[in-house]
Amino acid sequence: MPEHDAQDFINALPFARALGMRLDQIGEGHAQISMDWDARFVGDPATGVIHGGAVSALMDTCGGAAVLSYPGALGTATIDLRIDYMRAATPGQRITARAECYHVTRRVAFVRATAHDEDSANPVATASGAFTFERKEQP
């Protein structure tokens, strides 16, 4: 996907824009999207840790982007998504999600994803999910 299209992808999604997401990389069933820590996204004020739902939104967007970048994809929607929270994301640090669409059938795409903060060796969360896979019309 050319860079201006990648930027358009995020700009076209009001909620991705509201969370300040940035598409870092995309192509061939892989995507990387990141977002800054923000006080408005905090889930537990005692710790300043970002809400699981915000991490989930990042993973879901990244998973959808990975599916759309798979050759032949036209559209997608999440069927189900499971997130495992390994540890609290460190407050103040940017969160980066990477997703891989590792298998597609005629109508279904399978995705796994990980998210980390500035300590890229220890994931904050992992996810796996199934997405719908809408194909371009065969000529």
Partner: peptide, 20 residues
């Protein structure tokens, strides 16, 4: 309006639903 994920349909973002 900010909760929208797919403006073409339009549909609420899956991440909003998960968060909710």
């Amino acid at each position: 309006e900010k909760l929208i994920g797919n403006p073409m349909l339009p549909a609420i973002h899956g991440g909003v639903i998960a968060s909710f």
